[in-house]
Amino acid sequence: MSAAAMLEINGVVIDDTFAEAFPMKATRLVITAHNATWANHAAVALTGFATSVIACGCEAGIERVLEPGETPDGRPGVAVLIFSMSGKDLAKQIERRVGQCVLTCPTTAVYTGLDGPPDADRTALGKNLRFFGDGWQISKVIDGRRYWRVPVMDGEFVAEETTPVVKAVGGGNLLILAHDTEAALGAAEAAVVAMRALPNVILPFPGGVVRSGSKIGSKYASLPASSNDAFCPALTPLAKRTELSAEVGCVMEIVIDGLTDGDVAAAMRVGMEAVVARGAAAGVRRISAGNYGGKLGPYLYRLHALLGKEGA
């Protein structure tokens, strides 16, 4: 193992490896409601079952809570980010999720949260949902933006007509290798808190953490992905190739989707810093990352470089 591979901070070893991410399409929506509770209900529902594009169609999460002064209509709100593998998939997910989770939620309204470049692709937001109004819907163009007003039982549902679709990055990740479950969870939770404080990123898995990291392919032909056996402690003495030593009893992964390459990198950096700040005394042994040998995604995040220790 080279000197670079032995980078150690506070007793936590940072592997000389990289996370590999891939391009996605994304948008930001702003959901407002009569009060913060109902805005949150809508946002939680909209971002539910959106952990992985493998089977959910999109990856989505709450980016942050918005104060009334930050929203278009002066009410409490929530900003959510939605990522898909293509603009077409994204359009389908937006229509389904906003239609079923925001249109239905009392007092809500929905707007785009992106200005986007003038030539940005745009996808429907209220454009198709308006037909729920059965002909009673009316539109209003305000400062060049079209809003649809759909009569509903609590008044009217206001939705901006379209939202920009921008290029984004999905699949940034960190692997936290710890002595036991308690230590792995504690480190992951600390990293999630630090990463969620940053703008333009979401951590789409439950609580921001995933325990079922996957590798591409499977012995079963019908499965596109399967358990990442190299990082499963149960398989350390069994698997042909393992990345774990006997002292690692639990591994947690944090997946990051961001609007830009830099956003993902920043989140990974603060996540690692939060973990190493706790030190080896908290039970964390190593930080690593998942990749496919650099062959799948164009975005590579070298852990040492993110910490400013490239070549250390």
């Binding site: 407002t32 209509d73 002066g74 009410r75 309204a109 305000i142 809003y147 609590d154 009217e156």
Partner: peptide
Amino acid sequence: GHDVQVIWTLLARSLAVHGGPFAALA
């Protein structure tokens, strides 16, 4: 009789830039 505060706020904020009697509509 319904609550139109959402679209009203959007409209009023847009008109407020013209000042005068339109400034405080929101």
